[in-house]
Simulated scan of single mutants.
Amino acid sequence: MDGNGMYDDLPEQEVTFRGRGNSTWNMKKKPYRFKMDKKTEVCGMKKAKSFALIANYIDCSLMRNTVALWLANYLEMPFANHCVPVKVYFNGICKGQYMLTEKTGVGSGSVDIDEEKGMLFEIDSNYDEDYKFAYDLYSHTAVQNGYNNTRTLPVMISDPDLTEIAPALGLTADEYFDTWKNDFSAMLTAVMTTPSTGSLKEYIDIESVVNFFMVNSLSSNHEMRHPKSFKLYKDSLDGVYKFGPVWDFDWAFTFDGREGAPANTPMVDNNGDCGGYTFIKALLSNEEIRTLYQQKWNAFVKDGYPELKAYMEEYATLIEPSAKENGVLWPADYSVDWRLSESSFDFRENFDKLKVWIQQRINYCNEDPNFGLYR
């Protein structure tokens, strides 16, 4: 790896590459994960063995993830990912611009908690992990008949590997999973049954909820509606659930299947995938959360937004040459009707549209009684 004068170079070494992603793996420009033999500092990020290369194939600005992760770091969300724009070559052939970032999981390079005590969950309609359960939002129980997106939440253990951790605790993987399933279900039941005037502090970290949804609302992250890539973690069974780290902003901002998504729509509404909407609305109707959200949102608009604009200009200047090259390598793609991808070749035009959209989004969230979160 050539640090290009900005970061330390890395010597040539053997690494393991694999594909990553769900729907993104089916796109033409592939996302990857690579793993080294030992923990290594890469581009200023915390030492880790594994890192991700995000393709940003459907992002003609190549900046959606970058903007969202900047805000997560500005809000000082624990374990927020960082991003470094890189050009990737395979066998001497340029594959375009990618975003280098941490692999999200339990470990020193990401969610730095004790893997024998804590747990990283993901609420995701892909429902594809080994240990998972569906939570019925109406009967308030974990159900065994599978995920139904009209009334249940798809909850999965994202990390660590229970088959490795449980034996050290004198348990089977299934026994350890049941313990955490019951604990997570209790938190969900509290959210669904506590009156809006009640407190959820016994179960969840309120500030983490506010930060998590500020990032997702500013970006109008459409993945929340399913939901997908919705991560929470807990340091130990004696602690409280913390929302984050935030992840996956390809399908957000100006894009909702194609470019031109309006800025003045709620992050989620009761249309289609109702499970995510039902849970998010119940959570964000809580008055304690709403009061803190208003305070932090006002502070961001006053002080953080000017910093964000300056950062975006600096980042755009940095990536513009490689963005245009990326656009030549990966031209506009209209081959799939639900994923109409524009090229990054007209980078400045795309960047200007993103800036206008964010200003419109802030104006909308300022005026909307629910901060643009839900209808």
Rank of each mutant, 00 (worst) to 15 (best):
V301R: 06
V301W: 06
V301A: 08
V301S: 02
K302I: 06
K302P: 07
K302Y: 02
K302S: 04
K302N: 04
D303K: 01
D303F: 04
D303H: 10
G304M: 08
G304H: 03
G304P: 08
G304Q: 08
G304S: 00
Y305A: 00
Y305H: 04
P306V: 10
E307R: 10
E307N: 09
E307F: 06
L308I: 02
L308N: 08
L308M: 14
L308K: 09
K309H: 11
A310Q: 14
A310E: 14
A310H: 00
Y311A: 01
Y311G: 00
Y311N: 06
M312L: 07
M312V: 11
M312N: 14
E313A: 01
E313I: 06
E314V: 10
E314Q: 13
E314C: 01
E314R: 09
Y315R: 15
Y315F: 13
Y315E: 15
A316N: 11
A316C: 07
A316R: 10
A316F: 10
A316H: 13
A316G: 12
T317P: 00
T317G: 09
T317A: 12
T317L: 14
L318A: 14
L318S: 09
L318T: 07
I319P: 05
I319G: 13
I319T: 05
E320W: 10
P321W: 05
P321V: 03
S322W: 15
S322K: 00
S322L: 11
S322G: 04
A323N: 04
A323E: 02
K324D: 01
K324I: 10
E325P: 11
E325L: 13
N326K: 07
N326L: 02
G327W: 00
V328D: 13
V328N: 09
L329D: 04
L329E: 00
W330Q: 00
W330E: 02
